[in-house]
């Protein structure tokens, strides 16, 4: 088990290197090349271009450039934002925290509701409830998150005035945990819907399979109550699959956060990326992709290890 975990841990190193090469390459796709990308508006001055080129070694061969860039990035230096004229890292890390809060909130929704929905639809297979729930998940998974966000915002914030429509904390008074949670309810739910639908569907089909396994019948024959058959026996064997799919969904939650943050004015990475798109702030965008991917890789590693730990047959291999 430990050896295996070590192998998995080692395997993310080449992945992270690959990710860094891809993000490094992004700036080279910008028309005019990386020097222009890093200067933004100032690129019209040839002297500035020459200065940046020299300073960052952009006239050196590509591998050297990559190495220089990677060394700076590992040291927390992602360059200067061409839009905000401050170091990107000072923009990035506070926003990352906000996005992680949003993503975590979405993840809680997706796991709790998705799992409960998956289990109950499996228990009431082919019932009206099952059909409606499956239709709901299918529609939820076929709709753009920002559209769902707008509908929720219109209904609960504008019409019913139950929840705040914008921001992360209340404008009045000091920011409290409670006010963050209140602001989190809508955007996190909007962002969770697709992941929730996917988890519900995976859990449902895995539960349908698990519920007819001989060990569930045997548990019943030994006099165990229904909830133990379902939760302790059937669901326990669905758990590795559920965790696996949940880990994969985290990437989509990060992607969805981008849109949801725009709709709900959530001051996170997504909103930062949105502003970077509008302002063509390539440097900020590049750093955001690198950071989010890094977090995603680590989350998936954690999900992978959790899955291994939960499957005794797999763990002994």
């Amino acid at each position: 088990m430990l050896l295996y975990a070590g192998q998995r841990l080692a395997a993310i190193v080449p992945t992270l290197i690959g990710v860094s090469i891809v993000t490094f390459g992004l700036l080279h796709l910008v028309p005019g090349g990386p020097a222009v990308a890093m200067l933004g508006m100032a690129a019209s001055d040839p002297k500035a271009v020459a200065a940046v080129t020299r300073e960052l070694g952009l006239d050196r061969p590509l591998p050297t450039q990559y190495w220089l860039w990677l060394r700076r990035a590992l040291g927390g230096d992602f360059g200067m934002s061409t839009e905000f004229h401050v170091p990107v890292s000072s923009l990035l890390f506070p926003k990352l925290e906000h996005t992680l809060i949003l993503t975590a909130g979405s993840l809680v929704y997706a796991i709790v509701i998705g799992t409960i929905l998956g289990i109950t639809t499996a228990l009431y297979h082919r019932s009206l409830f099952d059909r409606l729930a499956m239709l709901f998940t299918l529609i939820g998974a076929s709709a753009p998150v920002f559209w769902i966000g707008l509908l929720l915002s219109y209904l609960f914030a504008i019409k019913l005035r139950l929840l705040p429509a914008l921001g992360m904390t209340s404008v009045l008074g000091p920011p409290t945990v409670l006010s963050v949670l209140e602001h989190l309810i809508l955007p996190a739910f909007a962002n969770a819907i697709i992941a929730l639908a996917v988890i519900a569907r995976i859990v449902r089909s895995a539960m349908l399979e698990a519920l007819v396994q001989p060990y569930v019948l045997a548990a019943r024959a030994r006099g165990l109550p229904r909830w133990r058959q379902v939760v302790v026996h059937a669901f326990r064997n669905v758990l590795p699959d559920a965790i696996n799919i949940t880990g994969l969904q985290v990437g989509f939650l990060f992607g969805g956060a981008l849109f949801v943050e725009v709709v709900f004015g959530w001051p996170g990475l997504g909103y930062l990326i949105y502003s970077s798109i509008q302002a063509r702030d390539y440097v900020t965008m590049q750093a955001a992709v690198l950071i989010v991917s890094g977090v995603f890789v680590i989350v998936n590693l954690a999900a992978d290890l959790a899955r291994l730990a939960l499957d005794p047959r797999e763990a002994r291999r």
């Binding site: 001989p214 024959a221 030994r222 326990r236 064997n237």
Partner: peptide
């Protein structure tokens, strides 16, 4: 079940939860 009438099945390994 179990207390009055116990049952054992054909494939005993499958009648225990693998987890």
């Amino acid at each position: 079940r179990g207390r009055g009438i116990g049952m054992i099945f054909q494939n005993a390994r499958l009648s225990f939860n693998p987890a």
